[in-house]
């Protein structure tokens, strides 16, 4: 049944999409083709899909660990931003360095920055019992303003007419391109490694086991002597580090410099991706790619069909509704299983 879900969602999407587009007077077949096929029907488009999905997958894989443990970090956007600030700062202060260790150091700093920003909600939660939904969300705004402060001041390019942006990163501070002539960069490999690591961690390690137990059966976890606080710390730091990696892989990847706004809300969209992928590492890869495709499709439909962004937004929401609604089949399947076991 779980395999039928996406197919059913797709069928329903196509049907409703056809209705919506016919209603708006657009050729529905053409519209759907521009949404789902045209963006990726060539090599460049396919790599762009990966470029767009990379930060989404990185943030989502980090969040998924916390969500499994019922730790509600919704501030990945802020952790992404601070990761970009930390990693980017290294270049800003040492722009001349051509060392091969430059990029690895930036990546490491990015992860540390994200983890540090997530450590604040972790500390406030474990020490003061402050709800992480609020603290992590509020820190998003603080992080965005911090980035704005830095690129309007100390981080800005001295030769840039005082416009709010840093120098463009040099080659030694930039993610290597994987495929000549495209923007596919090393960040996608980082994302893939992150997914694999998370998968192994959840399946094979004690901490992964603890995360799952605390999430599904907190009481059992407590009896087993698992520390709730340790899990809170672990999942927030892990989620923050992943978001930080997303941040640095964006700024030293396709962005190529520090700007006042470095993410169109990847940290928030990643929450959808995490759940769309059912918090499973492989599911998150597919969900990230699909989410990225709806964005690419929206752009293509605007360019080729003159469709306003409002329509593409409505359609994107609809696609998500269907995918999420089809969970009903998955859930019913669990129900049947439960009955089966109970009987």
């Amino acid at each position: 049944m779980v395999y039928i879900t996406p197919i059913l969602a797709l069928t329903l999407t196509i049907l409703t999409g056809m209705l919506l587009f016919s209603f708006l007077g657009v050729d529905p077949v053409e519209a759907l083709r521009n949404f789902f096929i045209v963006p990726i029907n060539n090599q460049y488009g396919a790599t762009e899909l990966l470029v767009k999905a990379t930060p989404l997958i990185l943030c989502a894989i980090g969040l998924s660990v916390g969500f499994r443990a019922n730790v509600w970090n919704i501030g990945a956007e802020g952790q992404l931003t601070v990761g970009a600030i930390f990693g980017g700062a290294l270049f800003v202060y040492f722009p001349e360095t051509e060392s091969v260790f430059m990029l690895p150091a930036m990546i490491l700093l990015g992860a540390i920055g994200g983890a540090l920003w997530a450590a604040i909600p972790a500390f406030l939660k474990t020490r003061f019992n402050a709800n992480e939904i609020l603290t992590s969300l509020m820190l998003v705004y603080v992080a965005t303003l911090l980035l704005s402060l830095l690129v309007h001041g100390p981080f800005r390019d001295p030769d840039g007419y005082n416009f709010p942006e840093s120098k463009i990163f040099t080659d030694s501070a930039t993610m290597p391109i994987l495929l000549e002539g495209t923007r596919l960069h090393f960040g996608s490999i980082i994302a893939l490694l992150a997914v694999l690591t998370t998968w192994i961690m959840l399946a094979k390690t004690l901490i992964g086991f603890q995360v799952k137990v605390i999430g599904t059966a907190p009481k059992a976890g407590a009896y087993a002597g698992f520390s709730q606080k340790k899990i809170i710390w672990f999942s927030l730091l892990f989620g923050g580090a992943m978001a930080g990696l997303a941040g640095i892989s964006e700024v030293s990847g396709p962005v190529g410099q520090l700007l006042p706004s470095i993410s169109p809300g990847y940290g928030f969209t990643a929450i959808i991706v995490a759940f769309l992928g059912r918090l499973h590492p492989v599911g998150i890869i597919f969900a990230g790619l699909l989410m990225a495709l709806t964005y690419l499709g929206g752009e293509t439909a605007q360019i080729n069909l003159g469709m306003p962004v409002a329509v593409t937004g409505v359609f994107q929401g609809m696609v998500l509704f269907y995918l999420l609604a089809c969970d009903v089949f998955v859930n019913y399947r669990f129900q049947l299983n439960r009955f089966g076991k109970a009987a």
Partner: peptide
């Protein structure tokens, strides 16, 4: 043709 609300950066 035009595309609206394009985010600065990679998009």
């Amino acid at each position: 043709t035009y595309v609206e609300s394009v985010k600065e950066g990679p998009d």
